[in-house]
Every structure is written in structure tokens, then in C-alpha cells.
Computed example of a mutant assay.
Amino acid sequence: MTPADVSGALVRAVRDAVAEGELDVSVPDSAVVFCRGAGIYESPVAMKLGVEPAVIARRAGGVARDGFVRIVVPVAAVVDGVLGDSGFGVARVPKGGWSEWPRTFENPGFSVRYAYARACWTGHWAAELGIGRGRFQGVAAEELALVGALGDVPGRAEQAERERDARPLMFCLERVAGAYHDVHERCPAVPKGDEVPGAMHTGRVALAEAVKVALGNGLNVIGEIPRERI
């Protein structure tokens, strides 16, 4: 489930409430959605419309929290949403970029490009071992941090488009890359030694592919061609 899916659910909730006479407002075309963590989304749609958030939250399957409508979805749904949306995080963003050098993790340009390459090669190595993509079921702190960073990508892409400044998206891509490096090192998708491949590994292959989609689209948006080798 992507932020666009959450936005759609909120708009439908408003439309239904208006149709049934519970609200008297103009139905918006979309709702702004912020990612607050792994599978946690919040929207100020009620504040923008000047209505009680509980009305929208109840119809959208969420809760009202400090004026926002909060919707929580399974972390696996976030990963599935990225994989099911070829245009995930795509927006009309001005060109941006980072220096190629130095090739250290302290250089965000290297970190983002290398994270994309790592995600690509994780898929290749898994395929060579006969490990396919499965349902993500990670619970490690590193994995949850990565899912939260992924969920923030579309909103930052929209912000970059709105502000005509690539930096909000670039900073978000840096967070995704940093989180993925942690996952790659501590929660590997490819079994080590005599470890038997299982559902945990197939789920991590899916997570790596989601990172590939998000970073690949992000790099394209800011004017770079993603590379599997750097």
C-alpha cells in the first residue's frame, strides 16, 4: 500500500461522508499523506477541510490523532505497494545530483548509487541460488527503518516537485540508501554458509527489489541513469 493508495482511501471516505450528509464540504481530488514510520501514514486532510478527523478516520479504517487522520497498514503491504507501482516516487522534479567522489559511505552520492547497485546484485545472487521473491515479513529494527524510509519517498518527490527543488527527494533517497546498507549488512537476503533458504530470505529479496524500484526511479527523476556497477 503506497501513500497514493492511502490518499485514495481518504478521498473516498470524504466522498462517502458527503454523499450521506455527514459532511458538507467540497471533495478534494487528493489528500496530502506523510509517512511517520513503517506502515504508519498521517494526513492533515481533516484540518484542511475544517472537519472533525474522526469522521474521516472512521470511514477510512484509521484513527484521529492530534487533528490528523492516521492509517496503519502492515509493513508487507508497503513493500507490496512499491513493487506493484512502476511509477513509485516519480514526479516532475528539477535535476539534481551528487559528486561521484570520494567513494566512501560518507559521500551521499556514493551511498545512494552503491545502494542501488547492491539491491540489483542481491536479486541476481538470489536468483542464482533459486531464491525467489516472497512476502516480506521482516521485524528487525533495521528492516522496519527501511520500510519507513521507503514509505516517505512519494511524499518527498511531490514536495520536490511542488517546491521546484530536488533536495527534499535527494535527502529522502539518502535515508533509503543508508537504511538499506544497514539491512544488507545485518539482515542479508542471501543465506550465509550452511544456512537453509526460507521465507525470511524470500521476503528480504522482495525488500531489496523494492529498494531497487525506489532508488532507480529516484535517480531517474533527478536526471541520473541508475547503474548496477559503479
Rank of each mutant, 00 (worst) to 15 (best):
V190D: 14
E143I: 03
F110T: 03
H184L: 02
A149V: 03
E224N: 09
V33I: 13
E174T: 09
V213H: 06
Y41D: 14
F68K: 10
G203P: 06
E20A: 12
R175S: 12
M200I: 10
V190Q: 13
N220F: 04
V51L: 13
W101K: 10
A149K: 04
H181K: 08
I222H: 00
C35A: 15
M170Q: 15
A38V: 04
V25Y: 13
G39F: 05
G216A: 14
N107V: 04
G50K: 11
A145P: 00
W125L: 13
A77K: 13
M1K: 04
E52D: 15
V69W: 02
C172K: 08
A149F: 01
A31Q: 09
V14Y: 12
A38P: 00
A9I: 03
L215E: 06
C120T: 13
H124E: 14
K212R: 15
V221P: 02
V11C: 08
R113G: 04
G134D: 09
D85W: 04
V213Y: 04
W121L: 12
V55S: 11
I40G: 00
A115V: 05
A4K: 09
E20R: 13
R103Y: 07
G130L: 00
F171W: 12
A64M: 04
G62S: 00
A60W: 03
A60L: 00
V51A: 06
E228R: 15
P74G: 08
N217K: 05
T122Y: 05
G96M: 04
G89L: 10
R175N: 07
A166M: 01
P94H: 10
G81Q: 09
G223V: 07
P102Q: 05
R204K: 12
V196A: 13
D24G: 09
G37C: 01
A57H: 01
L49A: 11
P44L: 12
G148N: 01
K48M: 14
V147Y: 04
H124Q: 09
F105C: 01
L23I: 00
R36K: 14
V14L: 14
E174P: 02
T104W: 07
R92A: 14
R204E: 07
E195G: 03
S111K: 12
G203S: 10
E185G: 02
P154S: 10
A77V: 03
P188L: 08
V75A: 14
H124L: 09
Q137H: 14
R65Q: 11
D194E: 13
E228T: 15
A160T: 06
V63C: 02
V79K: 07
E163W: 11
E42Q: 15
G87P: 03
E100V: 06
E224K: 13
Y180R: 04
F136Y: 15
G62Y: 00
V213R: 05
A177C: 08
E42K: 11
V6R: 00
R156T: 06
P28T: 03
D5L: 08
L169M: 10
M170P: 00
S30G: 03
V78E: 10
K192C: 08
G223M: 09
A199L: 12
P53V: 10
R12M: 08
E52R: 15
A54K: 11
R204A: 01
A127D: 15
L146R: 07
